[in-house]
Computed example of a mutant assay.
Amino acid sequence: MDQQDEALRNVRIAARGPQSTIEIDGEPVDFRAVGAYTISRLPGEPPHVVLHLAGSGDTQFEGMARVSVADMPDPGPAAAVFLAAINPEELERAALARLDLGADPHSLTEAMLTQLGEWARGA
């Protein structure tokens, strides 16, 4: 076993729907401490788990770790592509047909934004 293997940790993630539990070397991690996690693996290398801390919870991490720092991707380009693909006539028709369309000022705009959000989520 080389030096890199000695620093490896046993990580267990059990996920069911939006709920998950995480253990590191058999110790549970407070679910409030982790906002997200990613798992990746390159051929010939052990899996790489990145825990994105949420800034709350009681878990403290101690010891050696491989640290990964990632910037959140800019949503602008993806949003621009999504919006460019929207048919304005179809959006207006869908917004006007919504059961939650109100009669207040800006209700149509609110209905259109709600409709766009649903389309973006695949609903």
Rank of each mutant, 00 (worst) to 15 (best):
M64T: 09
A65F: 15
L113K: 14
G55I: 03
S56R: 14
P88R: 04
R41K: 15
V67M: 11
A36N: 14
T114M: 11
A85I: 00
A33M: 05
G102M: 01
N10F: 06
Q3A: 14
A79W: 12
M1Q: 02
A70L: 13
L51D: 02
G57I: 12
D25P: 06
P28A: 09
N87T: 00
R32M: 08
S68I: 03
A70V: 10
A33T: 14
L91R: 07
T114C: 04
E89F: 12
D30F: 03
T38K: 11
P105Q: 01
L108D: 00
I22C: 02
A103E: 07
E62A: 13
G57R: 04
V29P: 10
A79E: 08
N10E: 12
A85P: 02
V29N: 04
A15R: 15
G63I: 10
R98T: 05
E110Y: 05
F82Y: 14
G76P: 02
A79I: 13
V34I: 14
I39T: 05
I39C: 07
P47S: 11
V49D: 01
E45T: 12
S56F: 13
V69A: 07
A103Q: 08
I39M: 05
G44Q: 08
R66W: 13
G122H: 08
E27P: 00
L83M: 11
L96G: 00
P88I: 06
H48L: 15
V49P: 01
P73L: 10
L116H: 05
H52D: 02
E27G: 00
L91P: 10
A54I: 05
G63N: 03
L116S: 05
V11T: 07
R32S: 10
R9P: 03
A111P: 03
G44N: 13
P47E: 04
G117T: 09
E92K: 13
M112I: 11
S56G: 09
G63V: 06
G63M: 09
E45A: 11
V29A: 04
A80S: 07
R66E: 11
P43Q: 14
D30A: 05
E90D: 13
D74E: 09
F82K: 05
Q4H: 14
A85F: 04
R32K: 12
E45L: 13
D58L: 12
